[in-house]
Simulated assay, not measured.
Amino acid sequence: MKLANVIIVLILCLCFGCKDKPENKEVIDFIKDIDITHGIADDELDTSRKQPIFNVDVSLNGKKVDFTQLSTKENVVFMDAGLNIKLVNKNKNVCMLNFISDDLYTTIPNSFTFQSVNLPMNQQLISERKRSHIQVYIPETNTNKDVKILYTGEAIIQKLTEDEIEITFQGKARTPGETEPEKLYDFEGHINIQDYNIYDIRHNK
């Protein structure tokens, strides 16, 4: 069972489980404070880095989401066939990106056109299908309505090294639990991060 799959499922279970609850503290706290490095030994963190450089441009329906003044701690996890990125700014805006693919570290650029949110929940833990999961949490009204997840579209890993990651994505996002097709949001982003801290838990490096 892949760690990347487990992380996605935990997020989705909590998000979609609160469809009829406009204020769900457990979901809010989980998304705000989720630690993608939980259980990883400190000696697996590479801290011998230069000053991190983060350029994060994310927008919903043409309106930019503030991702200035980002935390530069515990941002990136390299896993076997998996990549996890967590970006959090001073206002607790969160952008989570997760990619699963057997050719993740060997194919660049790498296109992902299937989103994890479209898998049946019972397949989230066991499916090895190539996919991505991208979501933002914007705690402006303190409800689960602030969560938006890429539903259709494409994410592309343009660069992936231990020193630089560049990702672009464009498509439609929706709020967890929302099923009405007209309630979709234009969702796009360009992320470039350099000299970040890495947790590398790959068995085959």
Results as ranks from 00 to 15, higher is better:
T141Q: 15
N84T: 14
D146E: 13
S132E: 05
S111C: 01
F67Q: 05
N61C: 08
M121Q: 08
D102A: 11
G153T: 01
V77G: 08
V77C: 15
P109W: 01
V147E: 14
I108N: 02
P52R: 12
D80W: 06
Q115D: 04
V94Y: 10
E140W: 07
S127H: 03
V77I: 14
N144Q: 15
N84C: 13
V94I: 15
N93P: 11
N93M: 12
L97Y: 04
E140A: 15
V77A: 07
L83M: 11
S132Q: 06
G153I: 01
N98W: 08
M96Q: 14
S127Q: 02
Q135K: 01
K148Q: 11
N61A: 07
Y151K: 10
M121V: 14
I53R: 14
E128V: 10
E140C: 00
P139W: 09
Q124H: 07
N122Q: 09
Y137R: 12
G153E: 02
L119A: 01
D57H: 09
N84S: 12
L70A: 03
I126Y: 00
P120S: 06
F78M: 03
N89L: 13
V136W: 07
N144L: 09
Q115H: 10
G82P: 05
M121N: 11
L97D: 01
V88R: 15
F114E: 04
K145D: 15
H133D: 06
I149C: 13
K92H: 13
V88P: 10
I134M: 03
P139C: 10
S71H: 08
I53K: 14
R131N: 12
F54L: 09
R131S: 11
T107Q: 09
L70W: 04
R131A: 08
V147M: 10
V77D: 08
K148A: 12
R49M: 10
N75A: 07
T113W: 04
K148L: 12
P109S: 03
D80I: 00
R131I: 05
L70H: 01
T106E: 08
D102K: 12
L150A: 07
K92N: 13
D80P: 07
L60W: 02
S101D: 13
R49W: 01
